[in-house]
Write a protein that binds this DNA or RNA. Structure first.
Lengths: 213, 213
DNA sequence: GCATAGTTGGCAGCCTCTGCCATCTTGGCA
DNA sequence: TGCCAAGATGGCAGAGGCTGCCAACTATGC
């Protein structure tokens, strides 16, 4: 489904245990690229930034850039997939009698708590989100990523619980939407200098959401 | 916000009354392009279809294509904007005491009824949606269009009712999501040969939606 | 009819992205 | 330890997307 080149590469070495030099290098390069891209996007805007520029700043050839990134927008949207795999794992363990929506909420509660507890990456997330609000192409890329994630969630829900497709789509869409709203609000407040807690905001957003009837 | 070239062109002639030759030609050309693009996308896939090909099939120069369309994906997503303007008009008339969510539902009910009553364009909508399920770039373009529409809805809600941003976002997101689910389900059933009614499906989706708690 | 403003097409040019190949590095194994 | 298969990298060529500019043309309003 993805158009990306290497996004879904599973490394053989990874199975054997810890990363290995190759994989470590790959991540390192990916990080260099992401840093360079973020800097240049902020300085010149996404449109005016060229892949050649990013690649040069990251000390890599443009050809290698495309092998690792598929799009300049993707360069800053790189995501370890930890969150998604956690959610999918939780869904996979659902029995036919469990309430998927409740389980998703519980799962996200854990993740949000972990997120709040580790502010190391917050600054980077904020920079990207700030860019997104002013850069349509970046926003589009992000939305697409979300949509693909949601689609995988739908598949996992159907797979695990056998629920009807329409219902699975509704559950996934609701979950995804509430998450997006929460993150948006979180970024909004953090931007304003408030010490925002994702857990609290998530609760708040759910309250607003429910009040809509 | 949009990166498009002419998507937001307001024609001076339109104000004066009826279209005028220039505007009529424009729409005609746009339709030719959309038809050509749809045919070629179905035959060769989006990736393998070139703008030169579409332009040639539509009897227009590539340069003109880009002036009218901004992206080959946009070519088949052209949308009169009738639906959106109706919704925005309804929102604009909201007073501070009205319930925006209820009003949106009422408004959409009317539109869905009108949609069901006029099956002329259904076939085309279905062709595009079918394409979307297999063409990631097309899906991405569609999602982006939806997101921009939703953003405008949020702005209109805040403007009209003065409600808090977070709440407006929640209302708009919920509305947009239910619509997307409905359309998806509608396409799904129509594809399966069922005579699907958008009004009925909308009601059904809302029921499922509410049952999530 | 005539001036004006908007439309069209061609051209040059930049940028994105991919396939292919030669070169070098890593990881596994004798 | 040294060799070999499997990757990773970079360069190059080439197709395609997209835009600015200019010259020719055409609807519109007076």
């Amino acid at each position: 489904m993805s158009a990306g080149a290497t996004d879904e590469t599973e490394l053989a070495t990874e199975v054997a245990g810890r990363p290995g030099l190759r994989e470590r290098r790959r991540r390192e390069t990916l990080r260099d690229i992401a840093d360079a891209a973020l800097d240049l996007f902020e300085r010149d805007g996404v449109a005016a930034t060229t892949v050649d520029g990013i690649a040069a700043a990251a000390g890599v050839s443009p050809r290698t850039f495309f092998r690792l990134c598929s799009t300049k927008e993707q360069a800053v949207l790189t995501d370890d997939g930890d969150v998604e795999s956690t959610v999918l794992a939780a869904v996979a363990e659902l029995g036919p009698d469990d309430d998927p929506a409740a389980e998703l909420e519980r799962c996200w509660d854990h993740l949000a708590r972990a997120y709040d507890a580790d502010p190391a990456g917050h600054h980077r997330v904020l920079r990207v989100r700030r860019l997104m609000t002013h850069e349509p192409t970046l926003l589009a890329a992000g939305l697409r990523q979300d949509a693909e994630r949601t689609e995988r969630l739908v598949a996992a829900l159907v797979e695990a619980t056998g629920m009807p497709l329409l219902r699975a789509r509704a559950v996934a869409a609701r979950f995804s939407t509430v998450l997006q709203l929460s993150f948006e609000e979180w970024a909004h407040r953090a931007e304003a200098g408030e010490a925002a807690s994702l857990v609290d905001i998530y609760t708040e957003v759910r309250t607003v959401w429910r009040s809509l009837g």
